[in-house]
Amino acid sequence: MPKSPLSLLYFQHQRPQLRQWFVRRNRSSISVEAGSPSTPTAAIAVPNAATNRIVGRWLLGCSGLVVGAVVLGGVTRLTESGLSMVDWHLVREMKPPQSESEWEAEFSKYKQFPEFKILNHEMTLPEFKFIFYMEWGHRMWGRLVGLAYILPTVYFWRKGYFTRSLKGKVLGLCGFVVFQGLLGWYMVKSGLEEKPESHDVPRVSQYRLCAHLGSALVLYSASLWTGLTLLLPAHKMADTRRLMQLRRFAKGTGGLVFLTALSGAFVAGLDAGLVYNSFPKMADKWIPDDILAFSPALKNIFENPTTVQFDHRILGIGSLTAITGLYLFSRRMVLPRRTKIAISLLAAMAYTQVALGISTLLLYVPTSLAATHQSGSVALLTFAIWVLAELRKMPK
């Protein structure tokens, strides 16, 4: 049946209002389908720029807590406090000894292990309390890191803040936190074992220490990278040949920085910083005589303190050279201002870190300076990851 001109005029006038009504109706039906059966009107949030900022800031906060755990773990090792707690309980050990009798009982347990028998047999109860609280603080900080990852993950998941790809990444981070805690206890156990054939100072296995530090750095790097990519939009840069070379250069440099930080675990585990306290030569030689003292030769790389210190020096100098080259190469290119700032800060931190390392060596590894040097390695890794985030390709 044909419509009259007046009815057609009325329909055209009301068309925008009808379109808005249909849009509201469709949104309402989507919300009902996405909500729970008990609350059909509840709407599930869809990942967008605002939720990405929230998740990105959360991940940056988590990465900051991981840095705190790394630094606190380094100080715990430098003060030789890591073997003071001879048990591991997820909940029970959260409350330290309260009464004098509880402290005496804890001290008695410590006396049964090699560190007290060989190194600390004259230790008093007040001295034991200090090293106990250092290790206790490190373990409690680790539990705080775990809660900071797991609890917000549950909340954001229920709110619908994660995309499908981000869900996999976040689950991986949470799983890695749990693995990191178990690896920490596995490391401590190596220092509590009786070794009748050895009369050396009791210490944890340098291999397990390296694994523990390495897993913490992987957790930190993954959290920081994911957070930065959510918060910092990728730059629109043409994929020229020079830009692709710069990206490859930055990736190789970042890998070298990570490897150098990881080699520091072997230096710490073997107290290799106390072997040759001179620079640039080791004593009066560029290559010391005992660099291949162990047999087979491969064993020197991981168990000979002289070789471990030599390798860490080479890696540190290599990292400085690579970062300097990256900086000079980037100066010849037109890059966004934020990218230039990131590369400049990376270069400045590299020279600062080398100065800290040399000072730590020459002054016979004082605790405060050694802890600062370890923190500097994380700061250098941070700037390297920032540079990589700035140079990443635009998503397709």
Score class of each variant (00 low, 15 high):
residue 5 P to W: 02
residue 6 L to F: 13
residue 7 S to A: 13
residue 9 L to P: 00
residue 11 F to L: 14
residue 13 H to N: 08
residue 14 Q to M: 13
residue 15 R to S: 10
residue 20 Q to E: 15
residue 26 N to S: 07
residue 29 S to F: 10
residue 31 S to W: 08
residue 33 E to L: 15
residue 36 S to P: 07
residue 36 S to D: 12
residue 42 A to Y: 11
residue 45 A to I: 11
residue 47 P to K: 02
residue 51 T to K: 01
residue 53 R to N: 07
residue 54 I to W: 06
residue 56 G to H: 02
residue 59 L to D: 02
residue 61 G to F: 13
residue 62 C to I: 07
residue 62 C to E: 07
residue 64 G to A: 15
residue 68 G to S: 08
residue 69 A to F: 08
residue 70 V to E: 10
residue 72 L to S: 09
residue 76 T to C: 07
residue 78 L to W: 12
residue 78 L to N: 12
residue 85 M to V: 12
residue 86 V to G: 00
residue 87 D to T: 07
residue 96 P to V: 02
residue 97 P to E: 05
residue 101 S to Q: 10
residue 101 S to C: 00
residue 102 E to W: 00
residue 102 E to P: 01
residue 103 W to I: 02
residue 104 E to R: 14
residue 106 E to D: 05
residue 106 E to C: 00
residue 119 L to I: 01
residue 119 L to G: 00
residue 121 H to R: 14
residue 123 M to N: 03
residue 124 T to K: 13
residue 130 F to E: 04
residue 131 I to C: 02
residue 133 Y to T: 04
residue 135 E to A: 13
residue 138 H to F: 14
residue 145 V to K: 08
residue 146 G to P: 08
residue 150 I to K: 01
residue 152 P to D: 05
residue 156 F to I: 00
residue 159 K to I: 04
residue 162 F to S: 03
residue 168 G to I: 12
residue 168 G to T: 14
residue 174 C to H: 06
residue 176 F to N: 07
residue 182 L to R: 11
residue 186 Y to F: 15
residue 188 V to M: 04
residue 189 K to Y: 07
residue 189 K to S: 11
residue 192 L to P: 06
residue 193 E to F: 03
residue 195 K to L: 13
residue 199 H to E: 08
residue 199 H to F: 10
residue 200 D to F: 09
residue 200 D to V: 14
residue 201 V to I: 13
residue 204 V to L: 05
residue 207 Y to P: 00
residue 212 H to F: 08
residue 215 S to T: 15
residue 216 A to L: 06
residue 218 V to N: 06
residue 219 L to D: 05
residue 221 S to K: 04
residue 222 A to I: 04
residue 222 A to E: 03
residue 223 S to P: 04
residue 229 T to A: 01
residue 231 L to R: 09
residue 232 L to D: 00
residue 237 M to R: 11
residue 239 D to E: 12
residue 240 T to D: 08
residue 245 Q to D: 09
residue 248 R to S: 12
residue 250 A to W: 04
residue 252 G to L: 12
residue 255 G to S: 09
residue 256 L to W: 10
residue 259 L to N: 01
residue 260 T to D: 11
residue 262 L to I: 13
residue 265 A to M: 03
residue 270 L to Y: 00
residue 277 N to C: 03
residue 284 D to K: 12
residue 287 I to S: 08
residue 289 D to K: 11
residue 291 I to E: 11
residue 292 L to R: 14
residue 293 A to E: 12
residue 293 A to K: 12
residue 295 S to P: 02
residue 295 S to K: 14
residue 296 P to N: 12
residue 305 P to D: 03
residue 316 G to C: 13
residue 317 I to L: 15
residue 321 T to N: 06
residue 323 I to M: 08
residue 324 T to L: 11
residue 325 G to Q: 06
residue 329 F to K: 10
residue 336 P to T: 04
residue 340 K to E: 06
residue 341 I to A: 09
residue 347 A to I: 00
residue 351 Y to I: 15
residue 353 Q to I: 10
residue 353 Q to Y: 06
residue 355 A to K: 07
residue 356 L to R: 02
residue 357 G to C: 02
residue 357 G to Y: 01
residue 361 L to I: 02
residue 369 L to E: 02
residue 370 A to T: 12
residue 371 A to S: 15
residue 372 T to E: 04
residue 373 H to Y: 03
residue 374 Q to S: 06
residue 378 V to E: 02
residue 385 I to S: 03
residue 388 L to F: 04
residue 389 A to E: 03
residue 390 E to S: 01
residue 392 R to Q: 12
residue 393 K to R: 15
